[in-house]
Design a protein around this nucleic acid. Structure first.
Lengths: 107, 107
DNA sequence: TTGAAATATAGAACCAGGTTCTACATATTT
DNA sequence: AAATATGTAGAACCTGGTTCTATATTTCAA
C-alpha cells in the first residue's frame, strides 16, 4: 500500500500490520486497537506443570519465594506444579515474562 | 548483630533483614525464603477502579489493548474500571509493574 | 544428635476473579 | 451515511486463587 496518508493513518496501518496476525490467529478479539504503539507483545505461552516447576528451579527459588514474585500464595504454585490447577490469564503472562526475562524482570 | 559468619549466613541475614519488614507487616507467610536473592520485591499496591482507569489512560491505550498486555479480556478491564470486580493477585502484580515501569515493561 | 525451621505434598471448602455472551450507546473515520 | 473503535451493562458459568489443616522430608543450627 502507498504510504501517503497522515501520521495517524500510518500509525493505524502499522497497528493493523503488526496485530493482524494475532487477529487472524484468533488470539485477540475482533476489532479495536487504534494507537497500538509499535511494540510487539510477547506471545503468552501455556505452561504445563513440569514447565512451571522447571522454570522455578531454573530461577533457583522455593515455591514460597516464587509465589511472592507472582503475588500468589505458595499453595497456588504448589497446585500448578502438581497439575492440580492451571494458572489463569494474568498468571500466565507473568510466567511468560519470567520465562523470557527472568525473575528480575518482575522484581 | 555481628557479621562474622560464612557467606551463606550473610546471605541469610540479608534475606531476613529485607524480608523481615514484610513478614512483620503480615504481608508474607510465616517463615521461608532461604536464598531470596538480594533483589527487593516491589510492593504490590491495591488499585481502585479510578486508579486503574487513570493508569490505562496514562499509557494511552484502549481497554482492549490494555487487556492484551495483561493477558486478560477487555471485559475484565471494563469491570475493574467500573468497580464491578477487582483484580486478583497476579493481575495486581502486573498493574503494579505497569504503574512503576510502564507498559513496555510487560510488552 | 536433637530440635527447630524450611520446603513441599495433599485435600477439602469457599469465594470471587476471569470468561463469555449479548445488547446498547457514542464517538471517530472513511 | 456507513463502518469501525470504544466503552457500558448485566447475566451466567467455571475455575483460579485463597485459606485451612495435616503430614513428610530435608536442611540447618545449637
Amino acid at each position: 500500500m502507498a504510504r501517503t496518508k497522515t501520521y495517524k493513518s500510518n500509525v493505524k496501518a502499522a497497528i493493523h500490520e503488526t496485530a493482524q496476525g494475532l487477529l487472524e490467529a484468533g488470539l485477540i478479539d475482533k476489532h479495536t486497537m487504534r494507537r497500538f504503539d509499535q511494540s510487539c507483545l510477547t506471545p503468552v505461552r501455556k505452561f504445563t506443570a513440569d514447565e512451571i516447576r522447571a522454570l522455578r528451579e531454573r530461577e533457583q527459588v522455593s515455591q514460597t519465594v516464587f509465589a511472592m514474585y507472582l503475588n500468589v500464595t505458595k499453595d497456588s504454585v504448589s497446585q500448578w506444579e502438581r497439575g492440580d490447577k492451571r494458572p489463569a490469564g494474568p498468571a500466565c503472562k507473568l510466567l511468560s515474562i519470567v520465562a523470557e526475562k527472568g525473575l528480575s524482570a518482575i522484581a
